[in-house]
Design a protein around this nucleic acid. Structure first.
Length: 661
RNA sequence: GCCGGGGUAGCUCAGACGGUCAGAGCAACGCUCUUGUAAAGCGAAGGUCAGGGGUUCGAAUCCCCUCCCCGGCUCCA
């Protein structure tokens, strides 16, 4: 057959002739496209194994190991290797699914006893053996019946195979499996897994991996299903990339807001108080107050009106709103008082609605934007509480905008702009992701038309913002669709912060109305929005992103005066007074310590500026300015420094993300 | 809520086959030192070993229950 030839080309148009039956890998070699590590080939827009036979006229592009696609293939392959190692060591283990995920992979197993850390080490050792054994990944296509027989003792695989027909229709009669050929010269003894692929050519193509942890996970993510044991791992295109990733994880651990919150004396979680409830200590309270002052001023400027509403109210309110029915599990139990039941508020919405309905409203008042830093309480399940990121009591920068239908898109657009301004001001840059969430499959109230209208308005406003957005199908709140804004922090992690929600339902449930130009009552549309999301969560993100090195305008102490000897205390007091007179937060360190110890302490506390004062400075009315990061400047006139710092604070300058880290 | 791992002084941690195992460093307190750029010296003090129950001659150590924390799952701002 060698006389038969096929021609392949690369996306740039270069072509090469190959013998018939050549593989994708052969094609890449012929095209000169294998440079460095290539794990797979993109054939006519589909990622395939290097061993896939290719047809005449195919366009073939390499999938490099250091691309997102390449890493996914690598991680998925390592997941198979892990599953093989587990089944080697635990012969009765049933295995479920093992996909690649962001930065790694996992595989779920059903085993009699949960894995121990020692097991993890054994599994990892066995995986290294498999990698060294240079096992080939070979694809085989089977009929459904063949697959059912092959996996007869693997109930989870059977369940997946059974589902194939429904998912893919009559054409989906064929399922694919990948076998790891364990003995290259031998009888074809292989470890087989149900899989779509693609995979790396052989196990020795795994440059670097590590197993990380074991955790319980429900089969198919449903808590009514049995709990499986999930092993998480990570794999990279090089040892260096793996080391960099592990280092990044270590950096994240160092920045943990619970740890920094304690070290920097910002927040405390006293056990006596109960889980998920935080105390803001004086230093943390200053940072929070600056955040609150900024958002309050900004909110007023954008035409919102402040309201204050209480923490508790009669249960009837949440019956009307539907929260009790749809959200009841997350509410603290009722308090019986004078034949009525009161509840802590899990949301501020009904109270803002009551502010609206406190009298008749005219169309002239719309859009009516009510705003509050409202503290809410949610009975989060015990296992989910996580410092300030997931608390049982937290404060939302919550606003509800009541508007007419034709105002809706404009109001949403205004919220998106506002959300971007929040992120930029706090040094988080532009949103990393904007997602429009649509109607949930279950537990949703309202008509299809209302949902469609809300979703359309959100998409229109998102498109108008110029930001790319994605659709999160079925992720909306029970009362309406929403836009979530995500931001990336200084070490690359993504957080969901702002949320903007459209709601036709609560206005109806509360019989809200305004008088229109026609003199008749009309129902307003309601927009819920929280831009920080929760002050506590945003605070935590800010803390982890800056590693505690807050920009000067947020720093609890902006400048600390370090006197060289006791005799410099009077001048130090003058410096502090001078700065304080300009509204700056300055302190004198008059503790009984050496200067070196003081400097070290304040450096660790990430104070933006240390002002060293001794005989020279006192005589000349200057300070030696030792910034948290960068060069020290001696002999700076006190007036000049005060003016500089005041300017920096007023401008809310965000420091470079790396400073002080 | 579920699976797994934890809880020793304010903080970080040692001690754990049951028997001088109640320990260290830092912080806080007292005294001395008065300092020119990331940790001065000395002293005294500090703990129902998360809480409760059990096994034992004897429990920080073994067993059970509860509380709290951590990593995940589910859920979420």
């Amino acid at each position: 057959m060698s006389e038969q030839q096929i021609v392949v080309k690369d996306p740039q148009g270069a072509s090469a002739a190959l013998p018939a039956g050549a593989s994708a890998g052969d094609a890449l070699k012929a095209l000169g496209a294998i440079r460095g590590q290539v794990l797979a080939a993109n054939v006519d827009g589909q990622v395939r194994d290097l061993g896939t036979p290719i047809s005449d006229g195919a366009t073939v592009a390499p999938v490099p190991a250091d691309s997102d696609e390449g890493r996914e293939i690598l991680r998925h392959s390592v997941a198979h290797i892990m599953a093989q190692a587990v089944t080697d060591l635990f012969t009765d283990a049933k295995f479920a699914i093992g996909p690649p995920i962001t930065d790694g992979f996992y595989y779920d197993f059903d085993v009699a006893e949960p894995f121990t850390p020692e097991d993890l080490q054994r599994i990892e050792d066995r995986m290294h053996e498999i990698v060294r054994a240079d096992q080939v990944f070979r694809r085989r296509d089977l009929s459904k019946a063949e697959a059912l027989e092959l996996f007869a003792d693997q109930p989870y695989k059977l369940e997946i195979i059974e589902g194939v027909d429904e998912a893919e229709g009559a054409a989906g009669q064929v399922v694919s499996v990948y076998e790891n050929v364990r003995d290259r010269d031998g009888d074809g003894q292989a470890w087989v897994d149900l899989c779509r692929g693609p995979h790396i050519p052989t196990t020795k193509w795994v440059p670097a991996f590590a197993l990380q942890r074991v955790a319980g996970a429900y089969w198919r993510g449903d808590e009514s299903n049995p709990m499986l044991q999930r092993i998480y791992g990570t794999a990279w295109e090089s040892r260096k990339a793996l080391a960099a990733h592990l280092e990044q994880l270590e950096e994240a651990r160092k920045r943990d807001h619970r740890k920094l919150g304690r070290q920097l004396e910002l927040v405390a979680f006293p056990e006596e108080l109960g889980p998920g409830i935080a105390i803001f200590l004086p230093k943390g309270a200053i940072v929070r107050k600056e955040m609150e002052d900024w958002i309050r001023a900004e909110t007023l400027q954008r035409g919102y009106q402040p309201v204050y509403t209480p923490h508790i109210g009669r249960e009837e309110l949440w019956q009307i709103s539907g929260h009790l029915e749809n959200y009841g599990d997350l509410m603290f139990p009722g308090m019986e008082v004078e034949a009525a039941t009161y509840r802590l508020k899990p949301m501020n919405c009904p109270f803002h609605i009551l502010a609206f309905t406190s009298r008749t409203r005219s169309y002239r008042e719309l859009p009516l934007r009510l705003s509050e830093l409202g503290t809410v309480y949610r009975y989060e399940r015990s296992g989910v509480v996580n410092g300030l990121l997931r608390a049982r009591g937290f404060t939302q920068d919550d606003s509800h905008i009541f508007c007419r239908p034709e105002q809706l898109v404009g109001e949403i657009a205004g919220c998106i702009t506002f959300a971007r301004d929040v992120l930029r001001t706090f040094g988080l840059g532009d949103p990393s992701r904007v997602a429009v969430s649509t109607r949930p499959a279950q537990k949703a109230i309202g008509t299809d038309e209302q949902w469609a209208h809300g979703e359309a308005a959100l998409k229109e406003a998102a498109a108008a913002s110029g930001l790319d957005y994605t659709i999160d199908e079925g992720e909306g709140a029970f009362y309406g669709p929403k836009i979530d804004v995500h931001a990336r922090d200084a070490i690359g992690r993504e957080w969901q912060l702002s949320t903007i929600q459209v709601d036709f339902n609560l206005p109806a449930r509360f019989d809200m109305a305004y008088t229109g130009t026609d003199g008749a009552p009309h129902q307003p549309i309601m927009v819920h929005r929280a831009l920080f999301g929760s002050i506590e969560r945003f605070f935590a993100v800010l803390l982890e992103s800056t590693a505690g090195a807050f920009p000067a305008w947020l720093a609890p102490i902006q400048a600390v005066v370090v006197p060289i000897a006791d005799r410099h205390h009077p001048y130090g007091d003058q410096v502090v007074a001078h700065l304080a007179a300009q509204g700056l937060r300055a302190e004198l360190d008059d503790s009984d310590e050496t200067m070196g110890a003081k400097i070290r302490r304040h450096q660790i506390a990430k104070v933006p500026y240390q002002l060293i004062v001794g005989d020279d400075e006192a005589a000349e009315r200057t300070v030696s300015v030792r910034p948290r990061a960068g060069q020290q400047r001696k002999g700076v006139a006190l007036d000049d420094f005060a003016a500089e710092l005041a300017r920096e604070v007023a401008a809310r300058e965000a420091l470079p993300a790396s400073s002080g880290a």
